[in-house]
Structure formats: C-alpha cells, structure tokens
Simulated assay, not measured.
Amino acid sequence: MNNAKKYNIKIAIAVALLLSAASFTFLEKQEINSKDNLMEVLYALGQDYPEHYIEKPDSANIKRGYELIHVGKTKSADGIASKAISKFYTCTSCHNVEREDLDLTLVDQDARLEYAMENKLPYLQGSTFWGIVNRESWYNDDYILKYGSLVDDAKNSLKGSIQLCATVCSQGRELEDWEMTSILSYLSTLQMKVEDLELNIAEFEQMNSLAESNPDSAIAFIKSHYLSKSPATFAELPESKEKGYSFEGRPQYGKAIYELGCQHCHHAYGESDLVLDNSVLTFRWLKKHMPDNSKKSIYEIIRKGSYSELGHKEYMPNYTLEKMSHRQVEDLRAYIESNVK
C-alpha cells in the first residue's frame, strides 16, 4: 500500500472515530438534539436495539472494520494478519460509504446520479453503507430471484447479509466473529443522525412534542423521514435491443454513468479484466455489441448482471431498476454512440 493511501486511510479512520464519539445525549435528557444518533433516539423512545447494535464501539475495532471494508483485510487484536475476505473484490467495489440521496424518503435515480456527479461518488449497484445500520431489511424484494433461499438468513439480519455478501457476492470466505464485530463497529459510525432527516423548525418541534407525549407516534414520525429498506426490482430487457427503451438518451448523464459506474471497476488493474477506456475502439466495440444476447451488450449486463462460472468465479451484480432507470440505460447508450464517428 502506498504512503498516500495509508495517509488517506488514517484520515478517514480519524473522522470515523470522531463520529462515533458523538454524544448519545438523548438517553440523559428529555429533548432530542440534531446531533443525536437515530438508533439511540429510537431506543430511548421504546424501540429495541437491533441485533447488529454495537454499544460504544472502541477505536481499535472501528479501525479494523474500516480496513476490512476498504482494503479487504486487517490485523486481529493479537497482531496476526487476516486473510483477504475476497481475492476479487472489496466491499467498496459495489458499495459507497457516503450518503447518496438528498431526499431519504424516496427512490429518484436522476437525483441520485446528480448527487453522485456533484460529489464525485461512484454510481454503483449496491446500496450505500451510510445509514445501513438504520435499515430494517436487506437483500430485499427481487434479490430472491438470484439468490433463492440464501436470502432467508440475510433479509432480516444485517449480519446475515454481510456474510452472504462476503461468501457469495464477492466469492470470498465467511467472516470470523471478531471481524464481524469490527465491521459492525465501523458501520455504526456511518449511522444516521437526527440532522440527516433535514427537518424544518416546525417538524423538529413536532418530533420533540411527540417524544414527550406519545413515543410510539414519535417513532413513526421519525421513520417516515427515511426508507427503512432499499427497494430492489429486477427490470426487464427492452423488447428490441436495436430500438432500446422508449426514452431519448441524454449523453451528459451517460458520460457520468460511464465514468462513475462502468469505469469504477472496468479500468486498468480494476476488479474486472475487461477494461473500458475512453478510446474510439472501445466505444465502437460497445456499440457493435449493443444488440447481442450476451454479456457484451450493455442491456444484458446491466439488467441481468453475470453469474459465477467454472474458472471465472467473480461476477458482476446487476443494476436494479432503483439503481439505474431505463432512461439512464439509454443515457449510457447515447454517450457511447456519441463517441463513435
């Protein structure tokens, strides 16, 4: 690991430690503060902590969890280096660790893409780890179509979903207990705070009033301001790949999808052995294979993803409709075709 990357990791860990040290003040007072962690507020109002709750995670576990998420390996408490979770991917191959949406109450693909463009975030298939401990289900909806009964232990368990991601999605190994604790410790620093709900003054006063008079209603009020799960709909291919979906593509959005999405993995020394650069040859290749019934077609790979194969265990997850709209697929096509003379 080069010195610049080590420095960036140290900075990120320091920020995570500061976030984890934020006061859990609502347990000691009668008023909700904007800096309070949502999990602590909901607990104080009468909701049980989830199974993945880590009480006051220590700095060493947070550091190890950060490294497992971003690097794929770390050192145990006794200084022994762990094996890589996966030789193919790290968690950040498919997941951001930053907020991805301005409005936490709805799915808006264009708003999410614009937010990614503004903040230079990867536009990825997986849900962000930011706020993941505040969700109540994972591997939702249509993921059962791809993983079948494997989602049984994952849908209602963050621990189960992490193990499924480690062993199947990343084609890696099962996590040990101390590694799971470390990852959950780090993820707890990425949980939502009251201020993230972006309540106006009247809403903030209403929340505090409900907290005093009707805790159950306060819980419902708070949860109405963010999605408790990340919806997942497996979308259909267009009836004709020659014609595509019935939208006019926007090349400027397609450029962002190509650079923030496709090239996140498809670059030299990236997760994929297929390099998608900015050469005319690459854009011609992509255009030529647009109508194919194979992984060479952007329609096929975006909507179906790929599966583990003999001799090629790694695979690409598909983009659900919530993560890339039909129109955005046409945006990508428009950008590709705009680069072919």
Rank of each mutant, 00 (worst) to 15 (best):
N37I: 11
V97R: 02
S306R: 06
S161H: 13
H289L: 05
V280Y: 10
S306T: 09
A154F: 11
E212D: 08
K73M: 00
P317H: 05
E114N: 08
N3M: 14
V15H: 14
Y315W: 13
P251D: 05
F283I: 11
L121Y: 04
L17K: 10
I162Y: 00
V275A: 01
T128R: 11
H95T: 04
S59H: 15
K35P: 03
G160Y: 10
E314Q: 11
S224V: 03
K295H: 13
H267E: 00
K243C: 08
L274N: 07
S240F: 05
E314N: 11
E300P: 13
A14Y: 12
F204W: 11
D141K: 06
Y186M: 01
F24I: 09
F26N: 05
Q252L: 04
K313Q: 07
Y7K: 14
A22Y: 03
A21L: 12
C169S: 02
L310F: 13
S137Q: 13
Y307G: 05
G126H: 04
D110I: 13
R333Y: 10
A22V: 12
L124Y: 06
I69C: 01
Y89N: 03
H312A: 07
E239A: 07
A220Y: 02
N119L: 09
M290W: 07
E239W: 04
G79C: 00
M1E: 07
S325L: 12
G261N: 08
M207K: 05
K296Y: 14
L17M: 08
L237H: 05
N96E: 06
A166K: 03
K288A: 10
A232D: 10
K87H: 08
L19S: 06
D78K: 02
S34P: 15
L310K: 15
G79Y: 00
N214C: 08
I222P: 14
N200A: 04
L237E: 02
V107D: 14
I13E: 05
H95P: 01
E248P: 07
Q163V: 02
R303S: 03
E330G: 06
Y53Q: 02
L45S: 08
A44R: 09
Y89T: 00
L274T: 05
Q109K: 11
Y49Q: 02
S246G: 13
L197I: 05
S217Y: 06
K6N: 10
G46T: 01
P122Y: 00
N33G: 06
Y335Q: 01
K63A: 12
R284D: 14
I298D: 02
Y335W: 04
V194T: 10
R284L: 15
S188Q: 10
C265F: 01
S209K: 14
N318K: 10
N2C: 08
C165P: 05
M180C: 04
V194D: 09
H264N: 06
Y7S: 12
P291V: 04
L106D: 15
S137T: 07
I54R: 00
G160E: 09
I298K: 03
A81H: 09
R112A: 11
G148C: 08
F247Q: 06
V329C: 08
L27N: 05
D110E: 15
W130P: 03
K159Q: 14
L145H: 08
T233K: 12
L310T: 13
G160Q: 09
V41P: 00
S338K: 09
S272Y: 02
C165M: 15
F283D: 07
M290H: 12
A166Q: 06
Y143L: 12
Q328C: 10
V340Q: 09
V280E: 15
L17P: 11
L227F: 02
Q30R: 12
A116G: 10
S279F: 03
T181N: 14
L187I: 08
